[in-house]
Simulated assay, not measured.
Amino acid sequence: MNSLPSLRQPCPPGTCTCRRDELLEEPDADLRILRLTRHEEQRLLERLENIRSLADLERLQQRMYEQLGIRLSISPSHNEVRSMRGIAIDFVEQPGLCRKTRQAIPAAIRRGLERQPEVAYRLLDAHDLLRDA
């Protein structure tokens, strides 16, 4: 017996901008993002908080794209970087990505960078910001 993978529960009406219903109505829509249940989201956030290296962070970004279709860019902001808030974490617009998830993922990445500042230094170095240091 084939069973469909469990999909994320819908947000209460009027509280989210994810456009989940529009996504479900499209016949050829990419539904991978709806497979991110609340339990799976918690596991993802935990993994993002416990990154150990820049390669680990990049691997997680790649897996998020492959499995969920989430495109995420992490780079130093155009202004001065004095804390983890100075690192820009941006999403490509994607229907089905919940507003709370869109806020929780960058927060988890920043917590992970605060725990492992070497990863943030490698990120800055990868963007050639520490070449004169």
Rank of each mutant, 00 (worst) to 15 (best):
S3N: 12
S3F: 10
P5H: 08
P5D: 03
Q9V: 02
P12N: 06
R20G: 02
R20N: 04
D21L: 04
L23M: 06
D28L: 14
A29K: 09
L31S: 07
R32G: 06
R32Q: 06
L34Q: 12
L36N: 09
L36G: 09
R38I: 00
E40T: 00
Q42A: 15
R47M: 15
R47S: 15
L48S: 14
L48P: 10
E49H: 07
E49W: 03
N50R: 12
I51G: 06
R52L: 12
R59Y: 13
R59K: 15
L60F: 08
L60W: 06
L60Y: 09
R63A: 15
R63S: 14
Y65Q: 09
Y65S: 04
Y65C: 07
G69W: 04
G69R: 06
I70G: 04
I70T: 07
I70A: 04
R71D: 11
L72H: 07
L72P: 09
S75N: 05
S75R: 08
R82P: 00
R82V: 00
S83P: 04
S83D: 11
I87H: 13
I87M: 10
A88P: 01
A88S: 10
A88Y: 01
F91G: 10
V92Q: 13
P95T: 09
C98L: 08
Q103D: 10
Q103I: 06
I105Q: 07
A107E: 07
A107P: 05
A108W: 08
A108R: 07
E114V: 10
Q116K: 15
A120V: 01
Y121M: 15
R122L: 10
L124D: 13
L124Y: 12
H127Q: 14
H127E: 10
L130F: 08
